[in-house]
Design a binder for these strands. Structure first.
Length: 555
RNA sequence: GGCGGCGUAGCUCAGUGGUAGAGCAAGGGACUCAUAAGCCCUGGGUCACAGGUUCAAAUCCUGUCGCCGUCACCA
């Protein structure tokens, strides 16, 4: 009945356990969206995995004297633990070191080659005679021609910020052997290039037909990037770590990380299908035929730094391959600053996700990140604001609405959902608001306006508090027990709605409220619709949904 | 430097042509079921700055300043 929705989330680089900027940019929005779509009755597949290749991982492996695979395993394990704690509802979270991923990548490589979209080109590249290997820019340091910094990197001088090429450095040297015993040479090396100019026309046609429903900033960024014409891009490197090139004579080269990482969305779907015991099922998500041009809607949740890879390069690869489905939407988020400063690993002001979870747990963190989600422009993360929103909004507005109602019913109505009498216009108004909220919140989430959806849901929580104050069942009960019971019954219906409406955002708290309202099973299985909490349903002793936090001390 | 985005109340942010909005913070009030939570009222903005288009501009155009991103070997 529902349609297929493929939720693709950016592949985190396996070199840290993620920071909250990555969570708010891609992982949390993807998870909220996926959770909603499942409740709305659609068939959802949410996939991603750790991006294992690339130079920084080999650099770290060299520094620690271990293999790149060990580096990846170490961080992949940490990332998996974060997903578990954060409540990410993956259908599959894998890693790019699997044989399946390599096979999928090589298949795309060969098909693009066969279709004439790859070509070989020989270029000069820095080579270290001592180590007998070609060097990535990161492995080279030298004197910056701009500012004279003697340890400028081969790709950029960290002192003056100037972008560099290795041949611009004065006295470049290899950081692997550390010594300056042998000068770096520039030797010929042959590489494969993705012929993006040849794909540009088809890409432009697709973009023109698809981007009407995309976020304006994503469209503007993409159009600007392709406006002056695309350039061919090297997709292989002189490396030992990465997916091997499936051709004889290239044993000492690898497919480079950006090319294989985006293929992960497809390879992960295949791995999911294999694990289901239906290895051909991936076709139902990807294969585009004249009879069924779009078998599934593909959403890519990424940060804005990743836009061109998902709106230009990956679509171009898919077009070149042929017969596969392209993105339906790429709802890229802007960035989040940390305590007023740009999030930067080197500045040391990133907030690691495990640390934030240790301090405040998944619900407060998810709620806060969703509330400030940088959907239209950059936002600012502060612990003080997180605590403020937790205390004022989760505890005082939503949590309190539930707790004040449930404790009253517990005490005065034998811990059962009270019977309902004649409904007043005010009763009808709150019930209507609860029903309408499913449409308002659902439409917002479906359009990937997640902050708006959360605002709509919280408006219902505020309406509950206002209704309670207006109806004052604690007064009414002294005169008319049935009327007070009706008011409480109506409030419980609104709480029943909130348990569903907030489940995509704060699943743990929603599950807790689900149980406090006398339901069993998982709230995730409930349909996205208003369903009455039955009269007489037994209610367990209430426990507050949220904990108040002390404001963080100034440092 | 080129290109793109952003600059709205003390704070965090909505708002894309028609008399400036929300939450929090501040001041006042009535209540007491509730994790002293909730509810009502009030104050507060030359919508970065300077020009322009329009009957009408936070909203469109130009320039300036500030912040963010990107520029293809960061993934």
């Amino acid at each position: 009945m529902g349609e297929k929705i493929l939720v693709c989330i950016a592949w985190p680089y396996a070199k840290s356990a993620t920071h909250v900027g990555q969570i708010v940019g891609a992982y949390l929005p993807g998870d909220i969206f996926a959770r909603y779509q499942r409740m709305a009755g659609n068939e959802v597949l949410m996939v991603s995995g750790s991006d294992a290749h690339g130079t920084p991982i080999t650099v770290e492996a060299d520094q620690k004297g271990i293999s790149p695979a060990e580096v990846v395993e170490y961080y992949h394990t940490q990332i998996l633990e974060v997903w578990q704690r954060l409540g990410m509802s993956w259908d599959l979270y894998t890693v790019t070191t699997t044989p399946n991923h390599a096979a999928t990548t090589q298949d795309i490589f060969l098909k693009l080659l066969e279709h004439g979209y790859l070509f070989q080109h020989t270029q000069k590249a820095p080579f270290c005679p001592t180590d007998n290997r070609f060097l990535q820019d990161r492995y080279i340091r030298g004197t910056c021609p701009n500012c004279g910094n003697p340890t400028a990197r081969g790709d950029q001088c960290e002192q003056c910020g100037k972008l560099l090429d290795p041949d611009m450095l004065i006295k470049p040297y290899c950081t692997l052997c550390g010594s300056k015993t042998s000068a770096i040479e520039f030797r010929d090396t042959e590489h494969f290039f993705l012929d993006l100019p040849k794909l540009q026309a088809a890409l432009g046609t697709w973009l023109a037909s698809e981007t009407a429903h995309w976020r304006p900033n994503v469209v503007a960024f993409t159009n600007n990037w392709i406006k002056d014409g695309l350039h061919a891009r090297a997709i292989t490197r002189d490396l030992e770590w990465g997916v091997p090139i499936p051709l004889p004579g290239y044993e000492d080269k690898r497919i480079y990380v950006w090319f294989d990482a985006v293929i992960g969305y497809l390879s992960a779907t295949k791995e999911w299908a294999q694990r289901q015991g239906t290895p051909e099922a991936w076709r139902d998500w990807w294969e585009s035929t004249p009879a069924r041009p779009r078998p599934a809607r593909h959403y890519y949740f990424i940060g804005k730094d990743n836009i061109v890879f998902h709106t230009v390069i990956w679509p171009a690869m898919l077009i070149g391959y042929g017969g596969l489905t392209l993105a339906y939407d790429v709802p890229a988020n802007e960035f989040m600053q940390m305590e007023g400063r740009k999030a930067s690993t080197s500045e040391g002001n990133i907030i690691r996700t495990p640390d934030a979870l240790d301090r405040y747990g998944p619900d407060a963190l998810r709620y806060y990140l969703a509330a400030i989600m940088p959907e239209t422009r950059d936002a600012d993360f502060t612990y003080a604001d997180l605590v403020r929103r937790n205390n004022d909004e989760l505890v005082a507005t939503f949590g309190n609405a539930a707790h004040r109602t449930l404790t009253f019913v517990q005490r005065h109505y034998e811990a059962q959902v009270p019977a309902i009498g004649e409904l007043t216009p005010e009763d009808q108004a709150l019930l209507t608001a609860a029903t309408d909220a499913f449409t308002a919140v659902g439409e917002a989430i479906a359009a990937v306006k997640l902050r708006e959806g959360l605002t709509e849901a919280m408006a219902l929580a505020r309406a509950v508090n206002k209704y309670l104050d207006d109806q004052a069942p604690w007064k009414t009960i002294k005169l008319d027990r049935e009327r007070a019971g009706t008011s409480l019954h109506v409030v419980i219906q609104a709480l029943g709605a909130l348990r569903i409406l907030l489940a995509p955002y704060i699943p743990a708290a929603a599950q807790h409220l689900h149980e406090l309202l006398g339901f069993t099973g998982s709230v995730d299985r409930e349909p996205w619709a208003f369903v009455a909490v039955p009269v007489g349903q037994a209610l367990p002793p209430p426990v507050p949904l949220f904990t108040k936090f002390d404001p963080p001390t100034e440092e």
